[in-house]
């Protein structure tokens, strides 16, 4: 008898990372899954695992979406000579576009709020991209509006990748992140918990995991307030809701306080040796809430979440030396 799709996925286990490759973009995805032994002690009987997305070549989960978006545009002939790829970004997608663009020979222009961290500006600039700054008072929605304006003004100059609307963003996770989680847990995953930025990760991954096993619970995380400090996460009630956001694939939403996410980011560094960004802290804090609930009900579970990027992406170098208090 032929194996079913979900059985086939389990036998298709590949080594986590290529040891030799033709191009840097071949290193996108296939990230390791790490068990959070110290954190999960708070929820006896439940396992907590995290995808190390900081292992992607440009350092964040956004490499997956950026690669699929750029490849799709190239295949459809949308990036003819003289046309630049443009998108609005709060940072990580910009760095990912910058890496993919450099590797595949695509000129890139990024629209970012002026208050993105200095390392993000420096890293994107190092890859040779053009940056246009939007108002620091208007956040990522201000960057979205400015990108729209630029494209409307000179439509022939740009290919507007629009990560908030581009189906290739969730599709990247549908085709890579979800099958990897399925393989790496041997099909044992019971809960998937992660934050909403563009919503690409949670929507694409949840859609596929539900197809593989409808019993898997998929839970999104949003900041609990419009004025929050979980950089990279979006508070949808006060934001432009991304067109790719599809709540029908989500079983629940956790509203995360900034302090809980920040405290968890510190704990991950000290207890697990994982120095990750605040959004990763928020993700693990959400995963721990789910795990504690299961544990309190006397249930077992395998909870999987996402470590979006490393903590050093948020250093402000000179100021750090002045004992920067977050």
């Amino acid at each position: 008898m032929l194996p079913t799709g979900r059985e086939q996925l389990l036998t298709d286990l590949r080594p986590a990372r290529a040891v030799r490759t033709d191009s840097i973009v071949d290193l996108v995805g296939n990230t390791p899954l790490v068990r959070l032994h110290h954190i999960e002690r708070d929820a006896p009987g439940v396992e907590i695992w995290a995808k190390c997305e900081f292992c992607n070549p440009a350092g964040s989960v956004k490499d997956r979406a950026a690669l699929r978006i750029v490849r799709d545009a190239l295949e459809r002939g949308l990036l003819r000579p003289g046309v630049r790829l443009i998108d609005s970004t709060s940072g990580n997608t910009g760095i990912a576009y910058a890496m993919v663009g450099a590797a595949l020979g695509v000129p890139v222009t990024l629209v970012m709020p002026e208050n993105v961290s200095a390392p993000r500006k420096q890293v994107t600039t190092a890859y040779g991209v053009e940056i246009v700054y939007s108002s620091p008072m208007e956040g990522s929605d201000g960057a979205i509006r400015l990108a729209h304006e630029l494209v409307e003004r000179e439509p022939d100059r740009w290919h507007y990748a629009d990560q908030y609307k581009n189906p290739n963003n969730p599709l990247a996770h549908y085709h890579t992140t979800a099958p990897e989680i399925w393989q790496q847990t041997g099909g044992r995953v019971t809960h998937f918990v992660t934050g909403i930025g563009t919503s690409g990760t949670v929507v694409g991954t949840s859609r596929r995991l539900h197809e593989l096993d409808p019993a898997i619970r998929c839970i999104a995380i949003q900041p609990d307030d419009a004025m929050h400090g979980l950089e990279g996460m979006k508070h949808l009630p006060s934001s432009i809701v991304p067109a790719i956001y599809d709540p029908s694939v989500l079983d629940d939403t956790i509203w995360m306080p900034t302090d809980e996410g920040w405290d968890m980011a510190e704990r991950l560094a000290k207890e697990e040796g994982l120095f990750v960004g605040h959004s990763s802290g928020g993700n693990v804090a959400g995963a721990l809430r789910v795990a504690k609930q299961l544990s309190a009900e006397g249930r077992r579970g395998v909870v999987v979440t996402i470590l979006c990027d490393r903590g050093d992406r948020y250093f402000v170098p000179l100021r750090w030396e002045k004992r920067y208090l977050w």
Binding site: S88, T93, G195, P242
Partner: peptide, 10 residues
């Protein structure tokens, strides 16, 4: 005086 929050997703 500017009051500047963190940056939302994407």
């Amino acid at each position: 005086i500017s009051i500047v929050p963190a940056i939302a997703g994407g």
